[in-house]
C-alpha cells in the first residue's frame, strides 16, 4: 500500500517560454485517491498531461511504479484519462466509444459486449448503446467519457473535472459511484476539480496548487484544519484572513487586540497572517467580547446565516445558526485553538 505508483520529481513545464509548472515534486501511492485542487490556470491539466505522456516536461522526471517513463508515448503507459473536454469519437456510437480500448487489446467480442454493458449500467447509460455522440447531452457525454476510460481498468486513472457538466444531484451520485469503483477495483485515481467540497469528501489526499506550485499536500482534514498558508486557507472553505503581529510564542495581536494562541516558533514581532474560520467566531454579549463590530448584512445560506460585521474598519464574516439584526453592535469571541497563525507568503 505504501508503494509509490507515480512520482514526479522537479517537474518544470513551459508553454512558449511561459513557465506553468515550477519544480513540482509529488508522490502518489498505489490505490490512492488524490485530488488536485486549485484556481483556473494553475497547471492541473498540464500536470495530468505530463503523467499521461501528452507533453514532455522541460525538466524533471516522471516515474511509474519505480521506473522512469519520460519519453514513453501515451499508448504505452498504463494510464487512462477522462479528458476535461470529453474528446469522444464523433464517428462512433456510445457502445463503440466505450469499447474502443478493449478492441485495441483484441479482447473477444462477447467479453467486450459484457464489459461495455456493465460499464454503461454503472454510469446510468444503459439503453444508449447505439446513440450517436452528438445526440447526447453534455452530462451524458461526460459519463461516456468516464465509462470509456474506466472500462480498461488501468493502474492509474486521470480524471480532469469529470463531473463538471452534471447537475448537483447527479454529481453527488457519481461522486459516490466513482469512489466506490475506485475502492472496489483498487485503481489509483488522480482527480482534478475546482470544487473544494468534492475534493474534501472524495480524496485520501488533496494537493493544493497555485500558479504551477504545490502549496500543500495532505489529508482533507489536514488541509482544512491546518492550512499551510493563507492561500490554502482561503481556497479551502471561507476564511477571515487578517494581518497580525506575533509578539512572542502563544501571543498574537490583530485588530488592535492581543490574543492567546497555540502557535509558536515565530520571530519576535513577526508580521503574520491570522486565519479564522467564519464558523469559529462566536457571537457573545458585548461586555464579554474580545472584539466588537456593527452588523452590516445577514444572508440566509440554508444551514447557517452568513453575517458580515464591520469591526472598526476590519471586516469579519461569521457563520452562525442565529440571525442578527443589521445595524446592531455585537460582540465576538475566538478560542485560542481556532486562531491559525501563518507565515506571510512572499509574493
Amino acid at each position: 500500500m505504501e508503494k509509490n505508483i507515480i512520482s514526479l520529481r522537479g517537474i518544470v513545464a513551459e508553454y512558449d517560454g511561459e513557465r506553468v509548472l515550477d519544480g513540482l515534486d509529488l508522490d502518489i501511492r498505489d490505490e490512492e485517491f488524490v485530488t488536485f485542487l486549485g484556481p483556473s490556470g494553475c497547471g492541473k491539466t498540464t500536470t495530468l498531461r505530463i503523467i499521461g505522456g501528452f507533453i514532455e516536461p522541460k525538466e524533471g522526471d516522471v516515474f511509474f511504479d519505480g521506473k522512469k517513463i519520460n519519453g514513453l508515448p501515451p499508448y504505452q503507459r498504463h494510464v487512462n484519462t477522462v479528458f476535461q473536454r470529453y474528446a469522444l469519437f464523433p464517428h462512433l456510437d456510445v457502445f463503440e466509444n466505450v469499447a474502443f480500448g478493449l478492441k485495441l487489446k483484441k479482447m473477444p467480442k462477447e467479453q467486450i459486449a459484457d464489459k461495455v454493458e456493465e460499464m454503461l449500467k454503472l454510469v446510468n447509460l444503459s439503453g444508449f448503446e447505439s446513440r450517436s455522440i452528438n445526440q447526447l447531452s453534455g452530462g451524458q457525454q461526460q459519463r461516456v467519457a468516464i465509462a470509456r476510460a474506466l472500462v480498461n481498468e488501468p493502474k492509474v486513472l486521470l480524471l480532469d473535472e469529470p463531473l463538471g457538466a452534471l447537475d448537483l444531484k447527479l454529481r453527488k451520485e457519481m461522486q459516490l459511484e466513482l469512489k466506490r469503483i475506485q475502492q472496489s477495483l483498487k485503481i489509483t485515481f488522480i482527480y482534478v476539480t475546482h470544487d473544494q467540497e468534492e475534493a474534501l469528501t472524495m480524496s485520501d489526499r488533496v494537493v493544493v496548487m497555485k500558479r504551477g506550485e504545490i502549496m500543500q499536500i495532505g489529508t482533507p482534514q489536514d488541509i482544512y484544519n491546518e492550512p499551510a498558508n493563507a492561500f490554502v486557507a482561503d481556497f479551502i472553505g471561507e476564511s477571515n484572513i487578517v494581518d497580525g503581529v506575533m509578539h512572542k510564542d502563544f501571543l498574537v495581536e490583530f485588530a488592535g487586540v492581543e490574543f492567546d494562541c497555540v502557535d509558536k516558533g515565530f520571530e519576535t514581532d513577526e508580521q503574520v497572517d491570522v486565519v479564522i474560520r467564519p464558523e469559529d467566531i462566536k457571537v457573545v454579549p458585548v461586555d464579554e467580547a474580545q472584539l466588537t463590530g456593527l452588523v452590516e448584512s445577514v444572508t440566509f445560506k440554508g444551514v447557517h446565516y452568513e453575517i458580515a460585521v464591520d469591526g472598526h474598519g476590519q471586516k469579519w464574516i461569521i457563520h452562525s445558526t442565529l440571525s442578527q439584526t443589521p445595524g446592531t453592535l455585537i460582540g465576538m469571541m475566538v478560542t485560542p485553538e481556532d486562531i491559525h497563525i501563518m507565515k506571510k507568503m512572499e509574493e
Binding site: P74, F83, A87
Partner: peptide, 10 residues
C-alpha cells in the same frame, strides 16, 4: 483531442 484520446486508450 480525439487523437490524444485514442492514444490514451492504447
Amino acid at each position: 483531442d480525439v487523437i490524444e484520446a485514442a492514444q490514451d486508450l492504447g
